[in-house]
């Protein structure tokens, strides 16, 4: 198609390239836009759910999302304090 346009017009029509690049870029950027809020929400809710059973340091709850070409992953890293039974008891009492 590009070659055909080049033959007819005598030079490259660059607008289709611009259009395609923008479509790809914006699809990606629009996906990122809501992300910080989504992660914050996930973090709060995960923290609340786990805290019902184990006493946690909120600082030690890390939620991370990675978008790959084929697979995206959600990584939740929660550090459980020493003596998990004690903290379980503390929650129960």
């Amino acid at each position: 198609m590009m070659n055909l346009l080049r033959l007819i017009g005598g030079r490259t029509a660059s607008a289709p390239v611009a259009r395609e690049r923008l479509q790809i870029l914006l699809a990606h950027e629009r996906g990122l836009r809501g992300q910080p809020d989504l992660l914050g929400l996930l973090r709060t809710e995960i923290l609340a759910a786990v805290s019902r059973h184990i006493v946690l340091d909120p600082e030690k709850v890390i939620v991370r999302m990675e978008r790959g070409k084929h697979v995206s992953t959600l990584e939740v890293d929660i550090e459980v304090p020493h003596g998990i039974e004690t903290s379980l008891a503390a929650v129960a009492s």
Binding site: G9, A13, S14, A15, P16, A18, R19, L22
Partner: peptide
């Protein structure tokens, strides 16, 4: 320039 394909067209911009 838009009709020669050198500039994004109105439809391109509105579509995007």
């Amino acid at each position: 320039r838009a009709s020669r394909g050198e500039m994004l067209s109105i439809d391109d911009i509105l579509d995007i």
